[in-house]
Each structure stands twice: as structure tokens, then as C-alpha cells.
Design a binder for these strands. Structure first.
Length: 487
RNA sequence: GGUGAAGUGGCCGAGUGGCUAGGCAGAGGUCUGCAAAACCUCGUACAGCGGUUCGAAUCCGCUCUUCACCUCCA
């Protein structure tokens, strides 16, 4: 039968069979957003990718515990130790409180993710809600000699942890300093040491009491503390963007493993970037595509489909032309699904290769979540289905059912790129939709009569006028159908 | 300077020793009053130069180019 799930582990730089630490249960932590602005396409790529990871594992029968944090402590805008708290800065710009900024953009984030069909994590902890846990972790590191206080700041002593930099390959600290842009700090023992706790400067709003005075946690700390709290000291998978390998994830490893003496993460997964004209899309570069704006032009599911047509470890280049191409493909898939749902069972024997299609999809997803291959196999299947549906003998009722089930399982439940039956069949619900249905019925009846009388001028006029209003009429063997076209 | 990743047909985007990726766009055809959709057919693709091999887009070496990270970032 099909091979089992293998995942590319960034730490070992190889694909490895996935075996959860506790049989049947997978623990996953994914770095969440810092909530000081609306989500952009880059966030979408990351969370859609991990959504498929979670959905696939659940499909395989694993119980998945999925934690994704919300970073609502503003870390700094600038150098490692300079600059302003990002959330505080945004609050100043919007003339409000940091808390309001964090909550406003948290809601905005989930709104966008919901529209993309991204399932909510089981636990979505906030950094500000876990200050005691973070302080406790710092204390543990100070007690064990891996961290030291210096003027109200607490730093992790990089020299006390042998494997520092093993994830990113940046193990030579001397080399790192020579060409790096990290400014030297006088109160650090080593330039590579990173802050676990930072003293609050005057005017800093988000701050808490700690054994080292008023301050706030370092930006690598929350993930370690919350991951350990909810998933245990060793977790199966930690995911995030590639740009976070260093320093963020390397620091997480160092502070976690130094504290517990256990492996922190068994498999690291890193998704690649969205680029615009070949350059990374990022908040700081100001070239990002806001999801809410993008949704005005393209349906969220089209964006999801566009994202999943490339592999999570490959960069994805954004362009309107590319998304439009995806949109056409996406609509084709929905059309075939709709045809199946509306098909009248025929005599056609189900000779088409459904099981082969299924095996290949399973194989692709088991191979490090290869969604583009899975989608390509779905399209091969779509072609077979359309061909069969075109033939007079059609498909047997058993074939129709099995085909629908296959699409709903893989395109729907796992990849999340299938419109719902309701949306597809009725377009919209409610009274106005019913009225529209009735009006359309009348129009199509009139047009049918005109065509029967060979009055093509009238029939074409009806079709053209409807098309101008975004309603497309198609003549099929079974009669005319209509559908609303997206912009 | 250091650490990684990558260069595939008009565009997007998989693959990674021999066997069709797929989508979009384009050409021709079938069907249709015409459209649309669908289906069929059509592409001298793998940055360049060497090497290994019976055989390389796929492995090795060199060259060129691009990107990411080394500062917050999904």
C-alpha cells in the first residue's frame, strides 16, 4: 500500500519518516504573527501550508495538537537592542493603546484565515498571557548558569550551549561577528548572546515586574515557554518561516534545550517566502499584498489554491497574471465537481482509474506534503471525469458517488480547495436567491422558445445582456445552465 | 565576508539517473444555430561549460545569475 508520511526536517536537512513521540498523537507548534498590521499574502502561504499539514495528519488518523501563538508583545523595530516596540509604535500612530492594536489585528488575522479556510489552532496562546511562564524559564536558565543578568537585562550565554546555531549552520560565532550587522553591546559577555528579558526603558508601555525589575520578555522566549507548557518539553514539529531559522529558532533551541536538557523539537519545518518580482514580500519592505485587498479581486479560495499549487518549501512569486491563471484552473475544478453533483447516473462502467488517482494523491501528500503534485493528480482525474461525463453513456451511479467522495476527501477535506455544495448548487441562499432562481427560469424558458423558433437574435441578446450583468449562460446537452461569474 | 536555497517550454510551477507532471495562455480539430464549457491533437523546456554513465534536466566540478538569512519579519 502507500508509503507512510515523510517530512523534510530542516535540522537534519533530509526527509525523514514521521513518527510521533507519542504514538497516535502529533504535537505541532507554529510561529504565529506579530499583530501590529493586517495579514498579507506571506502569512497566507505560511498558515495555509501548515493548515494542510495538520489536515493531512488528521486525515491519516493522528490526533493533532496544534498550537500557534499570537505575538502581542511588541518586539523592536530596529537592531536587536535598539528601536521602538512595534506594537507600541503602531498604537502611537493610531493614537490608541497597544492592547487595542493587538486585539484589533488579532481579530483581523483570524478573519482572513477563516476566509482562506485555515482551521483554527487548538490553542492560540498570547505572549502577554504567559509572562509568568516566561519569567520562570529565564529563572531556570539563570539558575543553571546558562543566563546572566546585566543591568536589568538578562542574556543567554551562548558559550554555555554547545550546539548554538546548529539549525541555521551558523556555528562559528567569530565568523558571524566579523561580517554581521549586530551592534556590540557593552553589557553582553559575548556579542552573540541574546536577550531573554529586557529592562523597560522610560516610556515603554508594555512592561511587567520581574526578579530583575520592570521589563519585558525577549522575543525568542515566548515560543519556548508556551510550546513547553502546552505540548511538552519535546515536541514533534515546530514550523515557521525560513527567515526565522536564525536567529529566532536557533535561540529557541538553545534556551529550551539548555533549560530542559532534552531535545526541543524533533522535526523543524520551514516554509519559503512569497516574492514579488523575485524579492521577498515583507512588512519592512512595504511590498506586501494585503489579504483584505486581494480578496476584493480574487476569491479567498482562489488564493489558497494558488498557494497550494507550489510547494511549501519553494518560493512563490506573486503576480496578478499568475493568480488569474490559478483562478481559471480553480473554476475548472469546481465545474467538474458541480457536473458530478448534478450528473444523472448512466450506464457507463467505471473503468477509469480512480484507485490509481487516489494512490498517487496519497503518495504525493505523504511525500513532504507535495500539494502541487496532489493537485496535478486531481486535475488528471478531472480530465478523465469530464471525458466520461461527455459521453452519452455517462457514469454509473456508483462511479459518480465514488468520484464525488474522492474529490470531497482530497480537494475538499484535505486541501480545502473545493467550494461547498451549497455555494456551488444554489449560488446563494435566502429569499433573494430563490427569487433569482425563478426569474432565471423564466428567462431561460423564453430563450429556449426563441431558439426553438430559430430566433437566434433574441436568444443571443438574452445571453449577452445577462453576461454583461455577470451571469453566464451555457447551452449543454441537458439544457441551458447559468452561473454567476466572479469579477 | 559567512550560512543556506535556487536557475525548467510564452507565463506559473512539479520532478531529480532511462518511462506524460499539472495549470494558464496559444494553434488545429470534435461537439454546437452561434458562443461558452468539455474532450482530442500540437511544445527541438530543463542557465553555461566540462566530467561520470550504456543513458543526465536529474550525479560531480567549474563559471554566470538570482534569492533568503546574518536587524523586526510567515
Amino acid at each position: 500500500m502507500s508509503s507512510s508520511l515523510a517530512i523534510y526536517n530542516s535540522l537534519s536537512r533530509a526527509k525523514e519518516p514521521f513518527e510521533p513521540l507519542h504514538p497516535g498523537i502529533a504535537t505541532i507548534y507554529v510561529c504565529g504573527p506579530t499583530v501590529y498590521g493586517h495579514a498579507h499574502l506571506g502569512h497566507a502561504k505560511s498558515y495555509v501550508s501548515f493548515d494542510v499539514v495538520v489536515r493531512w495528519m488528521r486525515h491519516l488518523g493522528l490526533k493533532v495538537k496544534y498550537v500557534q501563538n499570537i505575538t502581542d508583545v511588541g518586539h523592536l523595530t530596529d537592531d536587536a537592542d535598539e528601536g521602538e516596540d512595534k506594537i507600541q509604535k503602531q498604537a502611537r500612530l493610531e493614537k490608541t493603546e497597544p492592547m487595542e492594536i493587538a486585539q484589533y489585528y488579532t481579530r483581523s488575522f483570524y478573519e482572513d484565515m477563516d476566509r482562506l479556510g485555515v482551521e483554527r489552532p487548538n490553542i492560540a496562546p498570547t505572549a502577554t498571557g504567559h509572562i509568568p511562564e516566561q519569567i520562570a524559564l529565564v529563572e531556570r536558565l539563570v539558575e543553571s548558569g546558562h543566563a546572566y543578568e546585566s543591568g536589568g537585562n538578562v542574556y543567554f550565554d551562548v558559550n554555555s550551549f554547545a550546539g548554538y546555531g546548529k539549525l541555521s549552520g551558523r556555528t562559528d560565532q567569530a565568523a558571524l561577528q566579523s561580517g554581521g550587522r549586530v551592534a556590540e553591546r557593552s553589557d553582553k559577555r559575548n556579542p552573540s548572546d541574546f536577550a531573554l528579558w529586557k529592562k523597560a526603558e522610560a516610556g515603554h508601555i508594555m512592561k511587567w515586574n520581574s526578579p530583575w525589575g520592570e521589563g519585558y520578555p525577549g522575543w525568542h522566549l515566548e515560543c519556548s515557554a508556551m510550546s513547553m507548557k502546552y505540548l511538552g518539553e519535546t515536541i514533534d514539529i515546530h514550523g515557521g518561516g525560513m527567515e526565522n531559522k536564525f536567529p529566532h529558532h536557533d535561540c529557541e533551541i538553545a534556551q529550551s534545550e539548555a533549560a530542559t536538557g532534552k531535545p526541543y523539537v524533533r522535526c523543524w519545518m520551514h516554509n519559503n517566502m512569497v516574492t514579488v518580482d523575485g524579492v521577498k514580500m515583507g512588512k519592512s519592505l512595504k511590498n506586501f499584498v494585503n489579504l483584505k485587498e486581494l480578496f476584493d479581486t480574487f476569491a479567498p479560495l482562489v488564493i489558497r489554491f494558488f498557494i497550494l499549487q507550489s510547494h511549501y518549501r519553494s518560493p512563490l512569486d506573486f503576480s496578478e497574471a499568475a493568480i488569474k491563471a490559478s483562478q481559471s484552473g480553480f473554476e475548472k475544478l469546481q465545474e467538474t465537481y458541480k457536473r458530478l453533483l448534478e450528473a444523472t447516473p448512466g450506464e457507463g462502467v467505471d473503468t477509469f482509474k480512480m484507485f490509481i488517482a487516489e494512490d498517487k494523491i496519497v503518495e504525493a501528500l505523504n511525500d513532504d506534503f507535495n500539494t502541487p503534485i496532489a493537485i496535478s493528480k486531481i486535475f488528471e482525474f478531472v480530465k478523465v471525469l469530464n471525458g466520461a461525463l461527455d459521453r452519452p453513456q455517462g457514469l454509473s451511479s456508483k462511479s459518480i458517488d465514488r468520484s464525488i467522495a474522492l474529490l470531497e476527501t482530497y480537494a475538499g477535506e484535505v486541501l480545502g480547495i473545493l467550494k461547498s455544495r451549497d455555494e456551488l448548487l444554489s449560488g446563494e441562499s435566502g429569499e433573494s436567491a430563490r427569487t433569482l432562481d425563478e426569474v432565471m427560469e423564466v428567462l431561460l424558458e423564453l430563450r429556449k422558445e426563441a431558439r426553438a423558433n430559430k430566433d437566434f437574435a433574441t436568444s443571443d441578446k438574452i445571453r449577452d445582456l445577462l453576461l454583461q450583468r455577470g451571469i453566464e449562460v451555457k447551452d449543454t446537452k441537458e439544457g441551458a445552465t447559468w452561473s454567476k461569474k466572479k469579477a
